[in-house]
């Protein structure tokens, strides 16, 4: 085991797969010679060559489309979209081609493409460097959609994604690339060193896609969350001294509804927290699925804390970001309701 940041863990996952599987190639903007704007691919081109770690022009539709063709013709491409906010020119290729390859060819072709992309706020990136678009991909049948919240999961899930025969949209919450973030921007930045999930094996291992993780056990209320918000919610729960169970969804599609529903049935209360806008967001699916399973166990309506239904603003980072205070208030309100 080695102490790694999430960026180092992702780099390690790609290195492991480049070394193990000659079909694996990496492509994207600035990923090769420069090593990626967040350094996730640093050193990989010099070690594995420009034919396997490919710099592309700025052309997201082309990057994803080419990855689909590579996959159809026997490679295992890992495409990086530099910010999730840049992914929309590729949305057509993802929705109309990538997601449908297996179904429309009656499984003659699959599309083993991994699309890595940094998402989320908390870095003052404004409207085009802060979005959390997982919901618009989870809505598309034929895609797997995941978001790890720590280095250990990031490496294990990225290897699982690359080895998966089907397309995986791999969201990386960039606010926790270099350390956990509990929602308090005034506190000095923490590093992953010393955090239990910052201890990462150097070699090959997988964390299966489709499994949620109970990151804190409790009986009074279930907090269902993912990405950066896992750490924010843990801090809010600690602030309140609540006997809360915190579940890291990790995999939006496929969703581990059994783990989530078991927890909510046990506690009878549920708060869903994500950074993405609230209306029509992934939290709406979580809420609907959980009430279908757990309605007769619920002590209170399922509640959501989410981003506001506006573009991500430049000047209001900490009003927009669903921080500890908003999670605390929602939890306090939720605990006061009695059926």
């Amino acid at each position: 085991m080695t102490a790694m940041s999430m960026v180092q863990a992702l780099n390690s996952a790609m290195e492991v797969m480049l070394a193990r599987d000659p079909r694996v190639v990496i492509l994207g903007e600035d990923v090769g010679y420069f090593g990626g704007v967040f350094r996730a691919t640093e050193g990989l081109q010099s070690r594995y060559g420009a034919h396997r770690v490919i710099d592309t022009p700025i052309a997201e539709g082309g990057i994803v489309g080419a990855a689909i063709g590579m996959a159809a013709n026997g490679l295992r491409p890992v495409a990086e979209i530099q910010f999730a906010d840049y992914i929309y020119p590729a949305y057509d290729q993802i929705v109309s081609e990538l997601a449908r390859m297996r179904y429309r060819s009656a499984a003659a072709f699959t599309a083993p493409v991994t699309i890595r992309t940094p998402c989320g706020g908390g870095i003052r990136g404004g409207q085009t460097h802060s979005q959390s678009p997982e919901g618009v991909f989870a809505h598309v049948s034929g895609l797997k959609v995941v978001m790890p919240s720590n280095p250990y999961d990031a490496k294990g899930m990225l290897i699982a994604a690359i080895e998966d025969d089907d397309p995986v949209i791999f969201f990386e919450p960039k606010r926790v690339y270099n350390g956990p973030f509990d929602g308090d921007p005034q506190k000095p930045a923490e590093s992953w060193a010393g955090h239990p999930m910052g201890e990462v094996p150097e070699g090959h291992y997988t964390v299966p896609i489709g499994k949620a993780a109970v990151v804190r056990a409790g009986n009074a209320v279930t907090v269902v969350t993912y990405g950066t918000m896992v750490h924010v919610c843990l801090a809010a729960v600690a602030d309140l001294g609540l006997d809360a169970e915190v579940v890291d969804v990790r995999s939006m599609v496929p969703l581990d509804i059994d783990t989530l529903a078991a927890s909510v049935a046990k506690t009878g209360r549920c708060l869903i927290a994500h950074e993405a806008t609230r209306f029509g967001g992934y939290g709406a699916e979580l809420s609907a699925s959980l009430q279908e399973r757990c309605f007769w166990h619920l002590q209170a309506p399922i509640q959501r804390v989410a981003g506001w239904d506006t573009p991500y603003p430049h000047a209001f980072e900490w009003e927009y970001f669903p921080g500890r205070l908003r999670v605390r208030r929602a939890l306090e309100a939720l605990m006061q309701v009695s059926a």
Binding site: I58, G126, Q127, T128, P311, P313, H314, A315
Partner: peptide, 22 residues
């Protein structure tokens, strides 16, 4: 303050906007 450096726009000057999407 909603736009910031990458998204300055001013319709009165015919400036449709800085744009961080290449």
């Amino acid at each position: 303050g909603k736009g910031g450096s990458m998204h300055i726009a001013d319709m009165s000057k015919g400036m449709l906007g800085a744009n961080a999407i290449v």
